[in-house]
Design a protein around this nucleic acid. Sequence first.
DNA 1: AGAAAAATTGTCCAATTGGTCAAAAAACTC
DNA 2: GAGTTTTTTGACCAATTGGACAATTTTTCT
Lengths: 209, 209
Amino acid sequence: MTLAANKNLSRIQKEKRSTIKKAALEVFAEYGLRGATLDKIAIASGLTKPNILYYYSSKDKIYFDVLSGLLDEWVAPLHEISPNGDPIEELLGYMRAKLTMSKQKPQESKLFATEILHGAPLTQNVLATSLKKTLDEKVAVINKWISEKKLAHVNGYHLFFSIWAMTQHYADFDIQVRSILDQSEDDLFKDAEEYLTSVLLRTLDAKAP
Amino acid sequence: MTLAANKNLSRIQKEKRSTIKKAALEVFAEYGLRGATLDKIAIASGLTKPNILYYYSSKDKIYFDVLSGLLDEWVAPLHEISPNGDPIEELLGYMRAKLTMSKQKPQESKLFATEILHGAPLTQNVLATSLKKTLDEKVAVINKWISEKKLAHVNGYHLFFSIWAMTQHYADFDIQVRSILDQSEDDLFKDAEEYLTSVLLRTLDAKAP
DNA sequence: AGAAAAATTGTCCAATTGGTCAAAAAACTC
DNA sequence: GAGTTTTTTGACCAATTGGACAATTTTTCT
């Protein structure tokens, strides 16, 4: 979907590109596109700077490759929402999937957050086309469920915004969260899931005003 | 609270420092601390680079001054939550205050978001002391309200996290929101407030399981 | 093994960056 | 309005940065 990707690449090429991307993800997530330097990526990857530039012709190319390689994965849980399942269970499952990603892939979350926060120079196009299209479809499903009285009357778009916001918050703002709550990661995410489940159950319940 | 601030400053000094801070806020919010350059701040402020350095001895000092000048303002709505008011109204009011800040001060929101996202190098201390202390107090109020059966059983910390996340999302991720929703700003925030009101009312309602 | 191709690196460069400084200009004081 | 202080600026500098390149080393292929 994103790019033709690793077509005719040798073993070494695949390995080294993967090494570089992994290191670059760390550095970009921590410092952002502009704050990240090739030197930092070189150190993080254990390669030399010219060697990195042998595989990627520029810093921007690395950034673009890392980001676009993650895009599909990032939107994937949205596709799992099935129009045929139980509405509440489908949406709770989506929330849990997003929360799990925040727990297990905080760097990826931060990378996207920084990208969007700073004007989404590389992804604005994808957001306005691919993501919008998918979300429009899912909101249509939500609205169908609502018309069938299976869900409370909620604004589908803002429902998704709030799920994104609440789940990604635990990755993007983890420093703030951890400054306030002194818990193990497992306990924190257990409490978060419990709270978010409660919020969603109450918000989506077809009964009540 | 933050610093002694403008003590013995001449008219010109106050004006220029204010001009610099305003321009720096724009640039820092858009590019982050590391992505912002003195040249960009110089252009945005209409001053020359050495002139800026006449008022602030370094870029970091500007950043620190801008950020710490905003800290109090940013936490202020939290102090408005009164233990004596109606619990639901107090918390709805807090949410509305935060949402209004997202609408009217998106740059400030983005500045904080970037700061925390990238490790909160300058604010971690404040987060772990001042903010934590205030939040602990407010969560104690929440818990009192819960024990008085005025609120549903919710985790107070995660309640605040979710309010922060959901309201700030409209400032920090506005590009994503606007890529998906093609509305006027007023309509967007009207819908957001309606949705968030509904979520909070249902989440906080003492009745229901 | 030996030739060809691929991978790696040391060295270098130009542009950008944060910051300095001395001199000029403006503002204030009496 | 002369003298003093404050403000402003042009010119400059050292460090960092993204990137180029030729030479060397390693891998691959026969």
